[in-house]
Design a protein around this nucleic acid. Sequence first.
DNA 1: ACCGTATATGAAGACTTCTTCAAGTGATGT
DNA 2: ACATCACTTGAAGAAGTCTTCATATACGGT
Lengths: 114, 114
Amino acid sequence: MTVNVPLYQAKAELFRTLGHPVRIRVLELLQAGPRPVHELLAEIDVESSNLSQQLAVLRRAGLVSSSRDGAAVLYTLSTPAVAQLLLSGRRILASMLADQEGLLAELRESADTV
Amino acid sequence: MTVNVPLYQAKAELFRTLGHPVRIRVLELLQAGPRPVHELLAEIDVESSNLSQQLAVLRRAGLVSSSRDGAAVLYTLSTPAVAQLLLSGRRILASMLADQEGLLAELRESADTV
DNA sequence: ACCGTATATGAAGACTTCTTCAAGTGATGT
DNA sequence: ACATCACTTGAAGAAGTCTTCATATACGGT
């Protein structure tokens, strides 16, 4: 999937994989170390089958890997480089919010989700 | 769009915005400085109306801003932090390819685009 | 005023991704 | 062997994104 494909396309796929709130939360939780699914489930507000689906997306993309631990399944970040990426994301958001402070009022005039 | 919304959702939206090959290429080209649309068009293999659509996505997300320069329109990165993010992306890809070198053969058995 | 080049926009259909549901597997305790 | 807990999977409709086409706007030159 990330192999044998133009670089910018592989990059787009990587970012697209991160483009989902549940997947972001999973990766953030996994930064602190491996965790079983039921712990993730306790912290993320989502149905268990949905969480499984999203974990499968992360697995296919190679961002996490899983291993069985008794009845539980442990998930682990495949590379600590993921933490860097999330950090950069946080920085951009911060820098954009700073820039846009003046626009706040204007934005609030339209509906929340616009 | 990035305002008034849980942080992890804002982050997901940011990453989703990056999740398109044309948009990635645009951002990478803009790292070197502002550029008019026709120059981007010359380097990215895409129809001009499609490029416009993708530029609009980047504008709405606040990642770039545009200004007119005569008949041309110049696009600029809104924040240099974007460069960091792209760099992190590149690093992850590198570290994943390194990990997966052993899987190369296996992957090549399936079709190119799988 | 008109033409050409540069760019943007709206709308429609194809395509992809999301969520949910029902059913499935595997491990543990009784 | 059975029940239960932990997790995964496949399928289907809803929702979202992409690409393309036709049309629109802005500017500069003649």
